[in-house]
Design a protein around this nucleic acid. Structure first.
Length: 198
DNA sequence: TCATTAAAGTTAT
DNA sequence: ATAACTTTAATGA
């Protein structure tokens, strides 16, 4: 789903460390690098006029981010911020393009990756357009769980705060909390020590 | 029905 | 200790 680290290094990629809260790139910046997360977590977000945050996505290790923006060479429509101490592989734009031109396997992999993202965006947008908070949260949880191996009910511990879940679905924290409790009653999920298991 | 505000308790750094 | 997060309740769109 992403480019082999050895391949990246052979093309001159460098690893960079980010502290919690450190900004990888800002909305409006032009893209100069291909980014691949090695460890930690990075969120892609926007701030609305009223200062409220909408989280577009939370990137996990092994995933890339911002590659579609790099390919169209337009300013970033979102910020990228490290949620914890993170290590990121950076490959500069020109080398990335060379790599794509010369390695069909990598090009195919990036294509697959972007297509997958686009598909997920459609699904998330569909769910997040619902007036019902449970539909939005369930959509988010299904999305997160789709990366897990174990599909058994309640086997997946959601490593997000309620605040983050609210920001990913466009709900207020309070509504998210209430909807999560309703979902617990409906046996859609379990809550153990304040953590959500789905 | 959901967002907002306020207030208080809890957890993490 | 301080900031961030969780929860409940009241009020209003």
């Amino acid at each position: 789903m992403q480019i082999d680290e050895k391949v990246l290094f052979s093309w001159g990629a460098e690893e960079k460390a980010f502290q919690t809260g450190e900004i990888v790139f800002r909305e409006g910046d032009m893209p100069y690098f291909y980014y691949q997360l090695v460890s930690g977590e990075v969120k892609l977000n926007n701030y609305k006029e009223d200062g409220k945050e909408f989280i577009q996505n939370i990137i996990q290790p092994g995933q890339t981010f911002g590659e579609s923006v790099l390919l169209v060479n337009r300013p970033y429509p979102m910020n990228a911020v490290a949620l914890s101490k993170s290590r990121v592989l950076l490959l500069c734009k020109s080398k990335f393009h060379e790599l794509l031109a010369q390695d069909a396997e990598v090009a195919q992999s990036i294509n697959q990756c972007i297509s997958e993202r686009l598909y997920q965006k459609f699904v998330m947008l569909k769910n997040n357009s619902s007036p019902c908070p449970i539909v939005r949260l369930k959509g988010l949880m299904d999305y997160l769980k789709s990366f897990q191996k174990d599909a058994a009910p309640f086997s997946f511990k959601i490593g997000l705060t309620r605040q983050q879940m609210a920001s990913l679905t466009g709900l207020s924290v309070e509504t998210a909390i209430r909807a999560i409790k309703t979902m617990e009653k409906k046996q859609l999920l379990q809550i153990r020590e304040r953590k959500v298991f789905y």
